[in-house]
Design a protein around this nucleic acid. Structure first.
Lengths: 152, 152
DNA sequence: GCTAATCATTGGCGAAACACAAACGATTTA
DNA sequence: TAAATCGTTTGTGTTTCGCCAATGATTAGC
């Protein structure tokens, strides 16, 4: 109503974010289980699709997951043939992780299944425009993250 | 740009939601630890403040957490004097859980601490208006949830 | 060439989330 | 008074996950 004078957001989203994402995540687990995936895998697959191939180290930084856990995560995915580890030609210590064709397809299949979950949770409380808006905000919030390039 | 003709959101937020909330949650844990709280506690305290007192059963439904786990959650909070369990005058088998004054204060203190976390994660990628917008969307998405009243 | 640093990997530890089963205690009903 | 109901409590077990240490392979510095 009145012009806000504050230059700081009054409301904090952290708790709501936690609550809402948990509601979606628990439902997602049920839906993803038949596909042999867990929510965590989905995030990794999504990042890999968008990046088009990164080192595990970069993946660890992006996901903010400990390197050792990234290994087991990728082991799961590679065991199913969804990702592929290649040695980097530049530095043969590194692995370059990439989605396989099967990975692309499985991801698409998972997203299709997850759409139903999201419709169930958000469908009755947000209209399409709001959901698109939410997506764009989240996208901006996650993509815009400062990836601290290792400058030594 | 063009008018969208679809009546279904093209983009799904689930994965982004998962990713972002995780980034905030891990940082929150560090910040909340000195206060003797975990993210889970914060969600419960927030719900209790807004509802102004509910039964554990209702809390269980809202948080979508198993009733038995709500107990231990409340035990933690009550041990610190943050919440209070009263017998319901209507049905003396029930407990009505309410925030204490100490609970209100601790929650405020926690929110203050969490604000710094949220600023760190969102501050550089979303402006104030966008953060408020995100909040309102999340608020609507969580508050609007269907609370299935037990009608037998 | 030799030593140190880097990257991926493995295994183990501990904390936490969570679901489930069973018991308990107070209260209501027959 | 006995039985049934309801919320709560206790306890157990599984799974997830972050962290630490050690190993092997590779690269970089001296």
């Amino acid at each position: 109503m009145e012009l806000p004078v504050v230059n700081q957001p009054v409301h904090r989203s952290g708790v709501l974010l936690d609550h809402l994402s948990r509601r979606i995540r628990t439902r997602s687990e049920s839906v993803l289980a038949p596909l042999g995936l867990r929510p965590r895998h989905l995030v990794a697959l999504t990042v890999l699709r968008e990046s088009g191939g990164t080192t595990q180290q970069a993946l660890s930084a992006t996901l903010e997951i400990d390197g050792t856990n990234v290994v087991s995560l990728l082991n799961d995915l590679e065991k199913d043939g969804l990702v592929e580890r290649r040695r980097s030609p530049e530095d043969r210590r590194r692995h370059i992780v990439e989605l396989t064709q099967a990975g692309v397809e499985r991801l698409a299949k998972a997203e299709f299944a997850l759409a139903a979950v999201e419709d169930e949770v958000l469908g009755s409380v947000l209209d399409e425009a709001q959901r698109e808006l939410l997506y764009s905000l989240l996208k901006q919030a996650t993509v815009g993250q400062k990836v601290v390039c290792t400058n030594d």
